[in-house]
């Protein structure tokens, strides 16, 4: 597949792993908040107006958010086809489960607004369960990826931890998104959820960051390599501070005139970015940890060049109209004005 085998000087695979990283990060943040909102849905009968508002806050965005997953998998498929096959074959069953989860929540979103009133609660449950299946399987897959696709008991325990951690992280960013998009009593509620989810996510991040270098010697050497260690340890340090600061800030919300209600979401985004760079830093240039580097897995130059031209023209446009869409739907989520 690759014309230049093991040639670390070729820059195209580096560009594509960068693009893929961006797509995965955009997915984790953007679909992250709408998955989080799904997980947080309160299921009490009296909570229906809250559910409506919460779902209204993600209504115009979820579809485009999910497209980042298609782009990320697409880039993996286009630029690193052998890694795509290898990873997805290892993760066959969790991928199938995740897709069913994504299907459940995607359709529940539309059905809940249009189905008979007595079915609405069922679809809301489907939405919540679908979101949970999606985040749990994604966390499990992240765990398997870090563990190098190992099925021993200890590694499965780690995957379980990772599944819970990722679910907590998605709830965290979902709750902070809601802090930004809601007001009144619901806002007070989501602030409480955000603090709880933040603490759970912090626990998850800490345990994953401790276990990962311990089980992967390569990762340990990468991080604890003097003098680089002084610099790279800034990543977990800032991440930790972010969690603490956010917790203190959330405790003081809501403030008068809704000041600083957008801040928790942005801090969470920074935390996501840092965690993600940490994972990227641990494994680069391997695309399948310990097995396959980005140069070994890359497609033919000609194909990469062809798609790169398009990507460089189209991605700025995508960012532009995405920004436009967020601008149009700025402000607090109101009742879903369907059409």
């Amino acid at each position: 597949m690759n014309e230049i085998i093991n040639n670390g000087s070729d820059w195209l695979p580096v560009v594509f792993i960068g693009l893929m990283g961006l797509a995965v990060l955009a997915y984790a943040v953007l679909d992250g908040y709408d998955l989080g909102v799904g997980i947080l849905l309160p299921m009490g009968e009296q909570d229906e107006p809250e559910r409506d508002t919460m779902i209204a806050s993600i209504g115009p965005f979820w579809d485009a958010n999910e497209t980042w997953l298609v782009l990320a998998v697409g880039i993996l498929l286009i630029a690193f086809p052998s890694a795509h096959s290898l990873i997805l074959m290892h993760l066959y069953i969790p991928v199938a489960l995740m897709l069913v989860g994504l299907i459940m929540r995607g359709v529940a979103f539309d059905f809940r607004a249009k189905a008979a009133v007595d079915h609405k609660l069922t679809w809301d449950r489907t939405f919540k369960i679908g979101s949970l299946i999606t985040t749990l399987t994604q966390g499990y897959m992240l765990g398997q990826y870090v563990m190098g696709f190992d099925y021993s008991v200890s590694s499965l325990l780690f995957c379980l931890l990772s599944a819970l951690g990722v679910t907590a992280a998605y709830s965290y960013i979902g709750a902070t998104w809601l802090v930004l998009k809601t007001e009144g009593e619901l806002q007070t509620r989501v602030i409480r959820w955000a603090r709880r989810a933040g603490r759970a996510a912090l626990l998850g991040v800490i345990s994953v960051s401790i276990i990962n270098p311990l089980v992967n010697p390569g990762v340990f050497d990468r991080w604890f390599n003097y003098p680089l260690v002084m610099f790279v340890l800034l990543i977990p340090a800032i991440c930790f501070l972010g969690f603490i600061f956010n917790d203190i800030l959330l405790k003081r919300l809501p403030k008068d005139n809704d000041r600083h209600s957008a801040l928790p979401f942005f801090i969470t985004t920074i935390i996501f970015t840092l965690c993600f760079s940490g994972i990227g830093f641990s494994f680069y240039p391997y695309i399948v940890p310990g097995e396959l580097t980005i140069w070994e897995a890359a497609s033919a130059r000609n194909s990469l060049q062809f798609i790169l031209v398009g990507a460089l023209i189209v991605i700025p446009l995508i960012l532009l109209y995405t920004a436009f869409s967020y601008h149009v739907f700025r402000g607090k989520a109101t009742q879903l004005d369907y059409h």
């Binding site: 209504g59 497209t67 995508i318 369907y338 059409h339």
Partner: peptide, 12 residues
């Protein structure tokens, strides 16, 4: 991306 993003504006 084109259809997904503008769909939001088209619908809501």
């Amino acid at each position: 991306f084109l259809e997904a993003t503008f769909l939001g504006i088209m619908l809501f």
